[in-house]
Design a protein around this nucleic acid. Structure first.
Length: 579
DNA sequence: GCCGTTTTCGGCCCGACTGTTTTCAGTCG
């Protein structure tokens, strides 16, 4: 049982305890432990055997015992009993907006409602409104929530949400009463999957802004409206929160609403050590209840930077605010100098008409030069990937000849000859070494038989990666965000193998994929594995998808030197050992 | 269930909004 699976069990225990009405702090302890385990870069088994687990914050004696049982027997009695004591449908019901553990418990205890279907029936029969603490509106909202859940996934891809948010912000910006306007929340932190859009505004008159936003053409309906907060659902199904604060409050509110929640909790804990209480309006003196809330600010800050400075910290970029060690690093002036979009000088893993792309080699090269890039790596599918127009040996040679011819016409630019070769189920590659040696670089990837057991899949990838001609691993996690579960693979083993073999691992920056996961980037960096950020572009417009990958790289603490395609053409040719 | 430079007990981040109530509980972020 790996750390990820254990983290999922801990998370579920926390939720089940909430449904049982257990001590909320105990519930939180489990949720917190889940996060801690998910972020570990060493197998829990190793930590427990060596006793190192004692040093891990958030896992105490009680949890260590349970984890031991889980690791040695593969089961946890406490978890099994807890699961058996509640119908599994209760967990599903938590996904309905407005329904939390308390209300679900009441529904279960009083009406024996055990699933979303039963809940819908009961609500339609108006049985809920008779319950204490429930009413007509809650009943209607539950029905709406169920509808909502069915109609839209409750998560959205970063690019989709970003485009939507940018449009709204650019229009609200023009309102006279707006002083400052910024994107906040997980979008500002560049998470690859977004729950909702948070927009923060500072203005003298909140009403005007909110009224204008309600009338925005992209708004489908208003979910909630107060004095400072407006919550709407956009026509594309994304929830969007608009908050209006005063100019003095803006930096505090921006920090607060940017999150993450876990980062904020740490910030507030840290504030306490300075005798301060931090909230979305400012710093107030600790203990003085009457100065809390919207009361006077004890220390004024004009920017987020000043907030961090007050707590003795370097400014922490939004991407890093995940309580992933950034506050400790900020306290010790050890924050990374993150890679930027402008550092990218080219990319690998792009397709053309030769396989399943939509543009010619010349068109892709021209578009790359327009972006200011010095090289473009082409990597078509190999022959087994027939569905994607995979190239056979003769087509390969034809393409390589065309690249040679084109390259003669360029100055300070080069098309790099690559291939995205399939790793077959037995771990062998789709081309012989004789063909592979013709390329400047070789990317290996999985495209078939995704349902292999994790152990076999991991072995398959490692075997493929070991080939001496392989330069990098593509589609490391194989995930298609929101559309398909990633294929089962032990990423820690893969990254260790990449380190052993000196291979590069790709961040596939196609918006549907955006893998590698940013947590793994951090691990890769610590392991000494180089990363390439590749757009997996199939046409000239999607070359810029590479910048979504930069977002992931930044979240994973990668610096310019960690990413190979920040290198100049000269450095890349040297790296690839080509003339 | 975790944690401790006020440490083995007594805290554990905090406020807005909604809908239920008539002062508050639940949910959310």
């Amino acid at each position: 049982m790996d750390n990820k699976q254990i983290a999922e069990i801990l998370e579920e225990i926390g939720t089940l305890l909430e449904l049982k009405g257990e001590n909320p702090f105990k519930c939180r302890a489990y949720h917190n432990a889940s996060r801690v385990v998910a972020a570990l870069t060493t197998e829990l088994k190793v930590l427990i055997e060596s006793g190192e687990i004692k040093k891990v914050k958030g896992i105490g004696e009680g949890l260590t015992e349970k984890l031991k049982e889980l690791i040695t027997t593969g089961k946890l009695k406490y978890y099994e009993e807890l699961k058996n004591s509640l119908p599994s449908g209760l967990l599903d019901m938590l996904r309905i907006p407005g329904l939390g553990p308390k209300r679900i418990k009441v529904l279960y205890d009083k009406l024996n409602i055990t699933s979303i279907e039963k809940l819908k029936e009961a609500a339609e029969k108006k049985q809920l409104e008779k319950l204490e603490g429930f009413g007509e509106k809650i009943e209607v909202n539950i029905l709406k929530g169920i509808e909502q859940l069915k109609k839209h996934a409750d998560k959205f891809l970063y690019p989709v949400a970003k485009e939507s948010a940018d449009k709204i912000i650019s229009e609200l910006k023009n309102l006279k009463s707006v002083i400052q306007i910024e994107l906040a929340g997980s979008l500002r932190r560049k998470k690859e999957i977004i729950g909702d859009i948070d927009i923060l505004v500072s203005a003298k008159d909140a009403t005007k802004i909110m009224d204008a936003f309600v009338k925005h053409p992209d708004v489908a309906e208003v979910a909630a409206k107060g004095e400072t907060k407006l919550s709407v659902i956009l026509k594309n199904g994304i929830h969007c929160d608009l908050r209006v604060v005063s100019e003095a409050e803006f930096p505090f509110a921006l920090a607060y609403f940017t999150g993450s929640k876990e980062h904020n909790v740490e910030m507030r804990s840290l504030s306490k050590k300075f005798g301060l209480s931090l909230n979305e309006y400012g710093f107030s003196e600790l203990g003085a209840e009457e100065t809390r809330g919207k009361a006077k600010q004890k220390i004024k800050c004009k920017t987020e930077s000043e907030i961090y400075k007050t707590l003795g910290l370097e400014f922490v970029l939004p991407e890093l605010r995940e309580n992933f060690g950034e506050l400790e690093a900020a306290a010790n002036n050890k924050l990374p100098n993150l890679i930027e979009e402008k550092d990218i000088r080219g990319t690998f893993h792009c397709h053309t008409k030769y396989s399943d792309g939509f543009n010619t080699l010349a068109e892709m090269a021209e578009a790359s030069q327009k972006l200011g890039w010095e090289y473009l790596g082409i990597a078509e599918h190999s022959k087994s990937a027939a569905y994607a127009g995979g190239l056979d040996e003769s087509k390969v040679k034809h393409q390589l000849k065309e690249i040679d011819d084109l390259n003669k016409s360029y100055k300070n630019f080069r098309i790099l000859k690559g291939i995205e070769v399939d790793i077959l189920p037995d771990g062998s590659l789709d081309f012989s070494d004789k063909i592979l040696e013709l390329f400047d670089f070789v990317i290996c990837a999985i495209h078939t038989k995704f349902n292999m057991p994790e152990k076999d899949m991991t072995k398959r990838i490692i075997k493929g990666m070991k080939n001496k001609y392989v330069t990098m691993l593509a589609h490391p996690t194989g995930r298609l965000l929101l559309e398909r579960e990633p294929y089962p693979v032990n990423m820690l083993e893969i990254i260790k193998a990449a380190s052993d073999f000196g291979k590069v691992v790709e961040i596939n920056a196609h918006p549907l994929r955006l893998d590698l996961d940013w947590r793994l980037c951090k691990f890769a960096k610590e392991t000494g594995v180089k990363i390439a950020i590749n757009p997996d572009a199939h046409n000239i417009n999607s070359l810029t998808d590479v910048f979504y990958g930069v977002g992931i790289a930044r979240k994973g603490w990668l610096e310019k030197s960690d990413v190979i395609n920040t290198g100049t053409l000269k450095e890349i040719t040297k790296y690839l050992n080509i003339n």
